[in-house]
Design a protein around this nucleic acid. Structure first.
Lengths: 140, 140
DNA sequence: GCTTGCTCCTCGAGTGACTGGAGATGTTAC
DNA sequence: GTAACATCTCCAGTCACTCGAGGAGCAAGC
């Protein structure tokens, strides 16, 4: 009987009220029952579900992938291969992002370093104008 | 007198036609003169400007930052400190993104690794549900 | 001169994942 | 009773595009 308001749930899950309603709209969170005054009344389990969503979002999962994971979580028997595949896909994407950002970092470091000298030596704008200056491997 | 069509410019800059028009709308590219039939007629300099924009986008700069850089590029006298500051800000953001993604990678690797055993051992969903399992440094 | 096929035009909607605000209503404390 | 706050629905805006509809310009072939 410990019903929670959307504000309580927002505080405990760390997700904003508007975002919780958005997740409900997107089907990530089931629509809860309402009070006589039309307020949403949440079960404590909703907090766990929202924490799950939040953590998955922090890991970079998109909402459709999270919906998949939540569906899998509802069937504890043998969902593991599917969940694992989702995680591996995500891992590959994260690794690709890291590789790409590392190349960008190298280039930005070069840009920032050369700016320390004099205005005449500044190559920030030249760097951006001439991609051939890049040593990075992120060219198509 | 070597006027270029938007299609020429798109090919040479590697930016899609729609995106070029979008950049024009956002003020990153000045509106070019038009032909008798209302087609945009570009100066070859537009290609260089678009390459600059494309490269800056690849480096993760947002459009407002790129607009700043383009404005600075128009004043070659002493704009360097400002351009340098923009580059340094960008570098800090890229480094933060790399740090955060590295933590995510570690967690996803742990998730993907444990999935290799049996369904009963799978911790992908538990990992997402319980943030305390994270070894990563990315908790508030 | 007419058709075919390509390019280009504007405008508007859609993406993802929210965020914020307006205006109305419910709830609580004093 | 009333003031303050929480919540409701709905809608617009963000960023950086992307796509499509419906129409018009343009070059080449017949």
């Amino acid at each position: 009987m410990s019903d929670l308001t959307i504000g309580d749930v927002a505080r405990e899950s760390g997700i904003k009220i508007n975002t919780i309603r958005f997740y409900e709209d997107r089907g990530l969170l089931p629509a809860p029952p309402r009070s006589a005054g039309n307020r949403r009344l949440y079960d404590p389990a909703a907090v766990a579900r929202l924490r799950f969503i939040r953590h998955a979002r922090e890991l970079g999962f998109g909402l459709p992938a999270i919906a998949d994971l939540l569906r899998l979580a509802g069937h504890p028997e043998a969902p593991c291969a599917a969940a694992d595949a989702i995680a591996r896909t995500q891992l590959a994407e994260v690794e690709a992002r890291i590789r790409s950002l590392s190349a960008l970092r190298a280039e930005l470091q070069r840009m920032a370093d050369c700016g320390a000298h004099s205005a005449a030596d500044c190559r920030v704008l030249e760097s951006l104008g001439d991609h051939s200056l890049c040593a990075g491997p992120h060219e198509s």
